Amino acid sequence: MYPSITPPRQVKIGDAATFAGTTPRAIRHYHEIGLLPEPERGGDGRRRYGYDDMIRLLWIRKMAEAGIGLDDMRAAFDEARDIEEILSRLEEALAAQEAAIKRRRAAVQRLQAVGSPLGLLSELVTDRLSHLPPGALRPSDVEALLVTERIFGPLGAAIQASVFIVLATHPDLRAEQDCLDAAEAALDDGVEPDDPRVEELAVQRCTQQMALEQAIEAAGLDTAEEKLFEIYDADLKGEEDTQMSASTATTKMPYDFSPARMRCMELTAQFLADAHSADS
């Protein structure tokens, strides 16, 4: 005959933890926060756990696996809150997490399909650039688009993409752009803001910008920009959290432009405004 085995009426914390699939440390924490009532202690002063305690521990483990927080467990056990309400809130939280995971997976898939770093831009922007051959955009072009998207959102960056499309397809304009960029960089070498070269360069930059605008119009890119406003609906605006106001950006984005270069940029904007007013 097999010897009879009589289960213990109570077990120590280590055995309780092993059976419930948790740890003694976790059980002590449950006691501290009031999730698990303190059991009676044996003659040696150690906690002893009975059947009801083990059922509570199993409930705690299963609820934790479902994602229910300890505070919500305690409220449910105390009947201070309907368990259906807790589960409803948990379902909403899980749905939000699932949506976030889908967005992250979509972003990773775009990076795989489009390539990095171009794939870091919003789909609205990369769609506009998709017809360009590989390598047509310079790293500095992509960096500029990233900054623009952060400040003005995907729509602003998609519109700015017209400039880089023209530069990538018009070598003469690209060469002139490079010369002007180099001249502007030279303004940082101790040139004073009132130096005549500053205004001269602003005039040249204004002329070149007007040529860019003409090339954009000739290529029909301005019409494409108008369509962007039509398709920029609520779905695309889900990326609004990726941008900030221009006033905030000026205080957060570091620039190392000299006063002379800043003056050149101001004059260029002024000259452009005057030119557009004269045309209208």
Rank of each mutant, 00 (worst) to 15 (best):
M1K: 15
Y2K: 12
T6R: 11
P7V: 03
Q10A: 14
V11Q: 04
K12Q: 11
G21N: 01
T22C: 02
T23V: 02
T23R: 10
H29I: 01
H29V: 05
I33G: 04
L35D: 01
E40Y: 04
G42K: 05
G43C: 01
G45W: 02
G45P: 00
R46A: 13
R46T: 10
G50F: 03
Y51D: 08
D52H: 06
D52C: 01
D52L: 07
M54G: 09
R56V: 10
W59S: 14
M63A: 15
I68Y: 09
L70H: 06
D71C: 05
M73I: 13
M73F: 07
A75L: 11
A76H: 08
D78E: 14
E79A: 13
E79N: 10
E84Q: 12
E85P: 02
I86G: 07
S88R: 14
S88F: 09
L94K: 13
Q97K: 10
A100F: 04
I101Q: 10
A107E: 09
V108P: 09
Q109A: 15
A113M: 08
A113H: 12
L118T: 03
L120M: 12
L124P: 02
S130I: 09
P133E: 08
P134E: 07
G135M: 07
R138H: 05
V142S: 00
E143K: 12
L146A: 07
L146D: 01
V147C: 06
T148Q: 12
R150W: 13
R150E: 13
R150T: 15
I151V: 11
G153N: 01
P154C: 07
P154F: 06
G156N: 08
A157H: 03
A157G: 01
I159N: 11
I159A: 11
S162N: 14
I165H: 10
V166Y: 04
V166W: 04
V166P: 01
L167F: 12
A168E: 04
T169H: 08
H170V: 08
R174P: 05
E176Q: 13
E176W: 03
Q177N: 12
C179T: 14
A182H: 03
A182L: 01
A185L: 00
A186G: 03
A186F: 03
G190H: 10
V198K: 04
L201C: 02
Q204N: 06
T207G: 04
T207E: 09
A211G: 02
A211F: 02
E213K: 13
I216P: 00
D222M: 05
T223W: 15
E225P: 02
K227T: 11
L228P: 00
L228K: 01
F229L: 09
I231F: 05
I231W: 08
I231K: 11
Y232I: 04
D233N: 06
E239V: 00
T242G: 15
S245C: 08
S245F: 04
T248S: 14
A249C: 06
T250E: 15
T250D: 14
K252Q: 14
A260F: 03
R261I: 05
M262R: 10
R263V: 00
R263P: 02
M265N: 11
A269K: 12
Q270M: 09
F271I: 07
A273C: 09
H276D: 01
S277Y: 13
A278T: 09
A278F: 07
A278P: 03
